[in-house]
């Protein structure tokens, strides 16, 4: 479903600030696989998602989605393949538009847009039912502007929008990091539920190693733009946080990852 071939991404090329963010990554994600991605700050996780999404192109290498080479396809033309949630909870929704209008826009992801009414009245019932899944009472506030929602509510809405018109691929960038533990737990469970229900191919970046181990079929660890650990199947099932920290403690300078080491199996710090 997703295939990266020798992908390299360099920022500020040929300047003193040159930064090799992704350094020759090869990755093949079969259809239906749920991959979690961990790595310390600046490891290149967001860059990797941006490359898959087409926010910018790679300096070297090719990207294939669903067998089609999309390396030079602009972001808006790749949109039909994927739903996406950003690290920043404000980035996934249009604040000055209502919940309903945001959902209606997501409903048309990757489809041609015309001069028909933006909110199709017959879809309203479906939006309401979908919002009920979030259990945040948003189904009664559909006409309100998204700017009135909290970050967590907005991120939950973004999750709904990303899966409303079922995508082939779901890209999640630490989408629970900015949420309070309770909402985060709910959003991650809902994510898991949606991924299983629609058998979505998923790439989920997270800072929470417990999450990375508990969810998904495969875990990838990035370090300085390279994949330094790639585990799946039974081996991943058996993995514990302590084990990973033992092996990679030296490369994981990241507090958010390390501080969970003593509480193996815990949900956060």
């Amino acid at each position: 479903m997703v295939r990266l071939e020798h992908i390299k991404k360099v920022f500020n090329k040929n300047t003193v600030n040159e930064k090799i963010a992704i350094d020759g990554i090869n990755l093949d994600i079969p259809e239906g696989q749920f991959v979690t991605v961990i790595g310390s700050n600046g490891a290149g996780k967001t860059t990797l998602l941006n490359l898959v999404a087409g926010t910018y192109g790679p300096d070297e290498g090719d990207i294939l989605l669903d067998g089609e080479c999309v390396t030079h396809l602009p972001e808006h033309q790749r949109a039909r393949y994927y739903g996406r949630i950003f690290q920043n909870p404000l980035m996934g929704t249009a604040a000055s538009m209502s919940i309903e209008e945001n959902l209606a826009m997501a409903d048309l992801r990757g489809k041609p847009r015309g001069l028909k009414w933006g909110v199709n009245k017959s879809r309203r019932g479906f939006y309401r039912e979908s919002l009920k899944l979030l259990d945040l009472g948003l189904e009664n506030r559909m006409k309100q502007n998204v700017s009135l929602l909290s970050g967590g509510q907005r991120q939950s809405l973004t999750l709904l929008m990303a899966t409303l018109s079922v995508p082939k691929l779901l890209l999640l960038d630490e989408h629970t990091a900015a949420l309070d533990p309770k909402t985060a737990q709910k959003v991650i469970q809902l994510t898991d539920q949606l991924v299983k229900e629609y058998r979505l191919t998923t790439i989920m970046v997270t800072h929470n190693m417990q999450q990375a181990i508990q969810y998904g079929d495969r875990m990838i660890m990035l370090h300085e733009g390279k994949i330094c650990y790639d585990v799946q199947g039974e081996e991943k099932q058996a993995l514990t946080v302590a084990e990973v920290v033992d092996r990679f403690g030296a490369t994981l300078t990241d507090e958010a990852l390390l501080c969970q080491a003593p509480t193996t199996g815990g949900t956060g710090c």
Partner: peptide, 9 residues
């Protein structure tokens, strides 16, 4: 950024 992700040029 958001609306581009939804397929709008």
């Amino acid at each position: 950024q958001m609306i581009r992700t939804l397929g709008v040029n």
